[in-house]
Simulated scan of single mutants.
Amino acid sequence: MKIKEFRKKYREETWRKATPQEKAMYEFCMSMKIMKKTLELIIAKHEQGEVTVENAHKLVDDSICALLDANELLDCMIKKQEKQG
């Protein structure tokens, strides 16, 4: 399933029925979307010679959020696997 379709699916009423793993995956997708936009902004500002330290700090913050969401997703996947095994 494409990322956009996945995000759209869990924006709707199915969110209440989503598993913890699906919720974690949704949060990770959203974090990656934010990080991508920040990276694109930094690239554009770099091309214009206007990139700042604050822009880099924002990218680091967004990256940390994405990492935390990825770890949450991993935790959910491990718990699911342990229940199945």
Results as ranks from 00 to 15, higher is better:
11 R>I: 01
39 L>T: 03
57 H>M: 05
12 E>N: 09
61 D>T: 07
28 F>Q: 08
20 P>K: 02
27 E>Y: 13
14 T>K: 10
57 H>Q: 09
10 Y>H: 15
1 M>V: 11
32 M>R: 05
74 L>M: 12
80 K>N: 12
45 K>P: 00
24 A>K: 05
13 E>C: 06
49 G>T: 07
59 L>F: 12
59 L>G: 03
2 K>I: 07
9 K>E: 00
76 C>K: 10
34 I>K: 11
73 L>S: 05
45 K>L: 02
46 H>P: 01
33 K>T: 10
60 V>N: 01
3 I>H: 09
37 K>L: 14
56 A>Q: 03
19 T>H: 07
15 W>M: 11
76 C>A: 08
75 D>N: 10
37 K>H: 07
58 K>R: 13
81 Q>L: 12
24 A>C: 09
80 K>R: 15
34 I>Q: 08
32 M>N: 03
65 C>Q: 09
35 M>W: 00
2 K>M: 09
28 F>N: 06
26 Y>V: 04
19 T>I: 06
16 R>I: 10
63 S>P: 00
25 M>W: 06
22 E>H: 08
51 V>T: 03
1 M>R: 12
73 L>I: 02
5 E>S: 15
18 A>N: 03
64 I>H: 08
30 M>K: 04
28 F>L: 15
10 Y>N: 06
75 D>A: 13
78 I>W: 11
65 C>D: 13
67 L>I: 08
59 L>M: 10
40 E>I: 04
52 T>K: 00
72 E>A: 13
44 A>C: 00
74 L>V: 14
10 Y>E: 06
46 H>I: 00
8 K>C: 03
78 I>L: 15
60 V>C: 04
68 L>N: 04
84 Q>D: 12
31 S>Y: 06
76 C>E: 15
26 Y>K: 07
43 I>V: 09
70 A>W: 06
18 A>R: 02
15 W>K: 11
5 E>N: 12
57 H>R: 13
63 S>L: 10
27 E>L: 14
9 K>H: 14
46 H>W: 02
76 C>T: 14
50 E>H: 04
37 K>Q: 09
81 Q>R: 13
69 D>T: 10
2 K>A: 10
84 Q>C: 09
29 C>Q: 06
35 M>A: 14
50 E>A: 09
41 L>D: 04
45 K>G: 01
85 G>N: 15
25 M>Y: 07
73 L>Y: 14
26 Y>M: 07
70 A>C: 12
57 H>I: 04
17 K>E: 15
50 E>F: 01
24 A>Q: 06
14 T>H: 08
64 I>Q: 08
3 I>S: 09
13 E>H: 11
36 K>H: 11
24 A>E: 06
81 Q>T: 14
2 K>N: 11
62 D>W: 02
16 R>V: 10
82 E>R: 14
81 Q>E: 14
39 L>D: 03
58 K>T: 04
43 I>D: 04
38 T>F: 00
